[in-house]
Amino acid sequence: MSSIFWWVILPYIVGTILVLGTLYRFAYRQMSWAAPSTEIHEKKWLRIGSVCFHYGILFAFIGHVMGILIPRGFYLALGITDEVYHAFAIIGGAFAGLLVVIGLVILLIRKIIHTRVRLHSTFADFFTVILVLVVAALGTYITAIYDVFTREYEYRTTIGPWFRSLFTFQPKYHLMESVPTIFKVHVIASFLLFASIPFTRLIHMFSFPIRYPFRAPQQYRSRSHFKR
């Protein structure tokens, strides 16, 4: 029964909060929707911390797409053996994970030590940084230590199909029962993080200005049909 809660009910609750919360914030809380930069207060440590963290998390995201969303059969069809995949995943994943963790530790220390940055950080800001750090540290541990020293766990036959099955509304929760505890903790912590996205600074990930290179440099707007 408990596996139904953790691998069926919780993911859908989180998904609902994420979608509805984001829509609500987009519709009614635009004024709070920003990348809340503290660069104006301090930029020496931000330069290392922010760049490490953000590029690390981009790599990590790509890695998760490759490992969880793309099925194992796809790699086999391409002729990529499990050994080659795992070697690549461990090296790439460890690199990305370390970037994220190092970046976050720098950002967290900066947040605590620098007076102006600390005073302008809310509970949500600390919560976010610490939770992302927990999730990233677990992920990095799994990739760089568990997979190397304990055993190479084939998550592409369990976690991957379960996660994809969430989107087809036929959750294969029984697949998660045999998964090692450390992976389960990583997944549940991530879902807590996803649920917090609409209420924290993490919301800025959805406004990456991808249209910028394609728009005209000068923007004109008329008062008569301004955005209401």
Partner: peptide, 9 residues
């Protein structure tokens, strides 16, 4: 973000 603009009028 295209948030800055020049007013037509």
């Amino acid at each position: 973000s295209g948030a800055l603009y020049k007013r037509d009028e």
